[in-house]
Structures are given as C-alpha cells and as structure tokens.
Design a protein around this nucleic acid. Sequence first.
DNA 1: GGGCCGTGCGCAGTTGGATTT
DNA 2: CAAATCCAACTGCGCACGGCC
Lengths: 377, 377
Amino acid sequence: MTSGPGREPSKAVTRPDAGTMAEIAEATGFSISTVSRALNRPELVAENTRKKVLKVADELSFHPNRAASGLRSGSHRCLALLVGDISQPWYSMIAKSVDTVCAEHSFALQLKSFGHDQAKALSYLARIPYEGVDGIIINTGDDLGSPEIRAQLARIAERGIHVVTIGQTIPGLDVPTILYDDYCGAEEATAHLVEDWGVPLVFLGAIRGSVPAENRWQGFSSVVRRHGQADGIRIVTDGYDYKAGYSAMSAHLRVGPWPKGVLASNDQLAVGAIRAITDLGGTVGTDIAVVGFGDLDFAPYLVPPLSSVSGSVQEIAGAATNRLISLVKGEAQGNAMPPITVPRKLVIRESSQPPPSAGTADWEKPGERHQREGANP
Amino acid sequence: MTSGPGREPSKAVTRPDAGTMAEIAEATGFSISTVSRALNRPELVAENTRKKVLKVADELSFHPNRAASGLRSGSHRCLALLVGDISQPWYSMIAKSVDTVCAEHSFALQLKSFGHDQAKALSYLARIPYEGVDGIIINTGDDLGSPEIRAQLARIAERGIHVVTIGQTIPGLDVPTILYDDYCGAEEATAHLVEDWGVPLVFLGAIRGSVPAENRWQGFSSVVRRHGQADGIRIVTDGYDYKAGYSAMSAHLRVGPWPKGVLASNDQLAVGAIRAITDLGGTVGTDIAVVGFGDLDFAPYLVPPLSSVSGSVQEIAGAATNRLISLVKGEAQGNAMPPITVPRKLVIRESSQPPPSAGTADWEKPGERHQREGANP
DNA sequence: GGGCCGTGCGCAGTTGGATTT
DNA sequence: CAAATCCAACTGCGCACGGCC
C-alpha cells in the first residue's frame, strides 16, 4: 500500500488544507507557539511579527480549531442551552436571543431540548461535562429540584462548568439567576380583571411542578383573596399547549357557572381557553375576559386581540447569556452576581378591555380598534 | 507558593477528576489504549478485560471527551442546524425534531439562527469548518443561491463536512435534500377555494427570494389560471410574521374589491390576514375564506379555526437528520440518496368551510362546530 | 504464531520555562 | 536584564506498530 516517499500520512484525504497554525508558522517562518501568542496574547509579541502573522492568518482565513484549543486551555468558547421544549414559542424566543449574544462574542451554542421529560434532561446533563462546553443556561418551567438533577448539576459545577438559570432558582445550588417578576405581573393582571370585570375569576394552568406557574398562581390568589373570594379558582391543565387550555376550559365551563374572567398561565392556554369559550357560545371581551402570560408575537393579531402580561425576552436572555460569558471568561464571580428580577407589564387588549357597560362609545367601530392596537404590538 | 511535594501540576484546581480514560486505565491496571479499544473496538480485546473496563467506566460514568476524540478521529459526533429564525414556529419545530434524532444517536447539536440575515448566515457558514462539526442541516426559506454562500458551502464540502438541506436545493451543490410538495399543496388548497368560494382569490406572502413561497405561488396561480383569472392576485408581504400579514392584507382590502378567499404562504400571515379582515368588518368563514400553510399547533384553536396545508415536520426533519448521520458515519454516499418529497395535505376548518349559501343547516350553532372540529385538531 | 496488549506518535492547539539577542 | 522567540510538555483520545506470551 505504501506508495512513494510522500510525507503525509492519510490526512490529505479526509480534510484537505485545513488552514492550521502550522501552516501559518511555515509561511511566516516563526514557530507555532509564536503564532499562537500573536493571535491570543498580542502584547507578548513584537509589533512586526504580529502584523505578519495576522496578515497570513487573514489570507488563509484562519480560525482556530475549537476542539484543539479547548483541549489544552479548557475554554471551548461554546455554551449549551437546555430548554423545556424548543418548539414552544417562549423557549424558541429565548433561544434566538441567546444565539444572538453568543454570536456577538463568537461563542458557539449547543441546543438541548428535553421535551419536559426529566429522564431526557438528566441524560443531557450527565453528558455536559464531556461535550466541550464552558457553561450552560437552563430555562424550563419544570421543577429541577429532584435529587438526581441536583446531583448532576453539582457534578457539572465541580468540573468548572458554569451554570445560569432563567425563571427559577435551584435549591441548594448557588448560581446566577434571572427571574421574571411573575408574582407582581399576576397581581396586576388580576387587579385589572377584578376591577373591570368583577368576580369570580379563574386561573388556568397551574399544574404541579412548574415554578413560574406557581408564582403566577400566588399573585393571582393574593389579589382574589383581598376581594373576599377565598383563594380563587384554579383550573389544572394537562400541559401548557393550546389543546390543554381548550380541554380544561371546556370542561370547567360545562359544569358550573361561568367566571367573569380568566387568567391563563401562558398565551397558548389563553388561546385554547378563548376557543373553548367561543365554542360554547360565549364572546370573549364581552361576556368574559381572558388574559394570558408572555405576550407572544401573535397576541395583538388574534381575534379578539389577547391581553397578556409581557416581559422582555431579550432582556432576560441577554442578561443570562452575558452573565454566563462573564463567568466563563473569568471576568466575574458567580456569587458576586445578585439575582436579577425583570419586571412584567400588563398589556390590555380587547380580550379583556372593560365591557360595554363600563366603557365609552365608539366601541363597535372596527376601524378604530386598529388605531388603538397599533400602539403596542 | 510551592507548598509541599504534591505531584499534580495545576489540573486539580480547574477541573477535579475529569473522568478520563487515564483514570480507567489506572483503576483497571490496563494501558490507556487498551481502555480505548475496549470501548471502541470490543472485538480486539479479551472478553474479560473488556468487562472490567466497562464496569469501571460505568462506575465513573465515563463518556469520551468529544473535543479530544474528535481531534484525533475527525468525527466529533456533532451536527449543526442552520435556520432562518429559530423564533418562528416552523423552524423551532424543525429544531425539536432534529434535536430528538440527534439525541437518539448521541450526537450533539449546534444551533445557528441567522435571523434571515444573509451576512450573518455567511459568517456562520465561514466558521463551520472550525467548529468541530461533522455535518450541517440547512433550513430556510431565504434564497441560498448567492455566490458568497455557495462559495462557503463549497469550502465546507471540501473539508469533508456533510450538508443536507430542507426545503430547497442549492444550485451547483449536489447534496441530499428533503422537500415538501408545496406546489401540489397549494394546488389542492386553491382548488378548494375556487370550488367552494369562487373567484377572485389572492395569494399572500410571496416576497422575493423565498423558494418555498415561490412554489406555493406557482401552484396557486396554475389553478387560478385554469379558472380564467390570469395569474391570480399576489400580495407581496414585508416578511413572514403576523404583522406583515396584517399590514399587507389591510392595505389590500382598503383599496379594492374584496376577494372571495385568501391563500397565505404560512400560518402567521394567515393570522394577520384574519385580523385585518375582522378589523374591517368582515367575517372570516362567511364573507371570505382564509387558508394558511404549515398547520401549526394553534391552527385548530384559533377563532375561527384556521384551514391550513399541513405536512409532517417530524418526517421531514427526521429524514434530513437520519440522512446526515448516515453520511457522517460513512454508511451511505450523498449522491446515492434520491431527493425525498414529502406530501402536503389540506386540512379544512371553519376559516374556509363552504359558506352558508352552499352549505347545509345548523351552521350557526356554536355547540355543533366543536363536534365537527374535534375530528382533526 | 495469532490473539492480546503496551509503546509512541499525532491531532491542533496552549503554556511554562529556557534560550536567544 | 528585558523583550522576543523557541522548545518541549501537555490536553484526551485513536491508531499503527511491534512485542509478548
């Protein structure tokens, strides 16, 4: 098989001309290590040689091989994003913002979507230490307090891989966290419903094990309680998608007196609820009010436009990513980062605008609605 | 600083007990290479030693370091997914399916969402050869035919990194592709509209440079032409989101006679269009029909439920990912993979169900609608 | 003398310390 | 001696070779 005195082993076959530091070294006459320093620590290299190296590097459109540089230095310039389910709008918006910030810092991003399946989350976490990842952002509504998850997270932290969470703290693990002020957001929305629509109200969505949903429920019930309604009514849904909202709401409406308003734990549930109400002959925004959480892109464009508790996704995801990158680069200490709480703000649209009885005139003219709407989609 | 005769260099500080092959070797008494063989090529190792190695590996919950093994072997067991915009439902559904298949094969997945920005796409592609990625799945409606993009793709292919595309072929680049039969899907939807609603009809969404949208437009106009309507009317939108559909549809409805029906290039545009029609006093499903493309999760739960041209995302994303993994593993040759075309199927809901004039009785009873609807959400 | 195993090198960089001017 | 550069070791793993029973 040996054919001639060629000095290359088997390399040229698989990846021709990989554009390595060795090539730059050969082209410039410097050693590989000088090339490396010229690129990474310019202050240690003479002005002139640095220029030469950079010039050749540019000509070869050289980028360092992530795997190789990470191997020795321990820094792979790569983050991981672990989310409940990337196909849900909320998580995909988070992913977009995280990806954007990563790209700005020329970090790569690994995606791990565990479909709200604890076992899958666990297996993803177990592999993290070997993935060549410097840090991980965790965002899910699911409860991460289980001993197995916490054990894996401890292992990860032990290996020097940094962790940042969005939306919930993990008991026993002291990592930077970005939170929404869901409690206050729910309070504001509930106050609006009580004042403009009255009681009873129902809360849609608090299944067990969801941390943000629990906060929203607490905010809701605190306001309801203040108005003499015990804790308020809680409709437990089987999941967080459109269908879950539809099913749970339908079931509730069929068996008892209708509430005056609904606060849903996210916009998908709200959409399902609106459909259920409509199906049963109700008119949302007239007979009954619906408010969602998240203020997804589609909220202003639904029929009727959906009121929702908004919050800047960019802000929350950007903050998380920037913090993680700071940690990874060693520019900051995790315990020196106070938790951030991002405010929520209620956006009122037709699905919960005060009913005709309490409202003003010109309410029926469709042309005008658009005017009002244009302001805050 | 040197305190005592400790024999470790500086390792223990940064990442204590990394769980390497060296540790397994030490624990079992075998050499590192034997451990490696026991794990990767069991047939070359004695039954007994293999068992011992596997046992210890399991106890240490050992996984090979991706960076290191990829460095030497050239296979990183990692794919990249390049999408137009991960925050759009379509792409996030694709991402979910791709992630799932990757996890099944214990491949990692890098996410690159370029926000429909050609420059960003280009910079992502330029870095691909250095990211430690074995292959890349490209899915976007944007036209990838530009010379710069094609040059980068050629470089990528040259490095032995495999490419698979979803939704469009790239001229001059012979890579496996999975397509939807958008042309036929549009034909079916348009035929339905013509027969049940009549003409004129409008097509919403064909901005320049979107390949699937172009196919949908062609399918639409071929049917319309057959009914003596020249090419049909095409409303060009400024993007693909809810807002674009709303703006374009509003503008169109204000200036001319209303069409009998609308075929939108995706469901987001359809939602925007429905809102525009409603705002201007129309009733979707009675005065005018709307059909979308994609059949997103929310379609059955909108008011009115949205007709849409569906197609299995799992099928398309799964096929693409499996093909790419086959290529990477060397189990197949790219040119031996015929293009797959996944069928589309029209799902009719209330937004385009035949109008009262042509329909039967009991059409107004809301309770009944749900019955009809329950069949196919 | 053919299974079984260890040695040594290479992958593409990074880094501490030695070497050169 | 200080600035600039180089040498050699090292990262975790895979593979060709060769040695040993």
